[in-house]
């Protein structure tokens, strides 16, 4: 069975504003505001162009953003992001 892949909500549905170490994210589809910090903005950016599974996403975060983490922690973040609607599970 192929691994679950994830993709970020379309860029047109998000407004992201940088506030010091945080990012404020307005999700137009739900009308909800989220205040997020690393690694969430990086996850959204990595998943913006193409859907990735967890392994590929971990590699991408390490390569592009020098963010090291384990699969379990990433899984939890993805679960939260799916619940908010900022990330879609394919």
């Amino acid at each position: 069975m192929p691994a679950t892949r994830y993709r970020a909500a379309p860029a047109a549905t998000l407004s992201i504003v940088s506030l010091d170490l945080m990012r404020a994210v307005y999700h137009r589809a739900s009308g909800r505001t989220h205040l997020v910090s690393e690694p969430v903005p990086e996850i959204l950016a990595a998943l913006a162009d193409e859907p990735l599974d967890e392994v590929a996403l971990l590699d991408r975060l390490a390569r592009d953003y020098a963010i090291e983490g384990d699969a379990a922690a990433l899984g939890e973040r993805l679960e939260e992001l799916v619940a908010t609607g900022l990330v879609e599970q394919l």
Binding site: L19, D20, L21, M22, A24, T33, L35, S37
Partner: peptide, 11 residues
């Protein structure tokens, strides 16, 4: 008060 905290408090 950093902008992130200020944002939360003002919402």
């Amino acid at each position: 008060v950093a902008p992130g905290e200020c944002f939360v408090r003002l919402t």
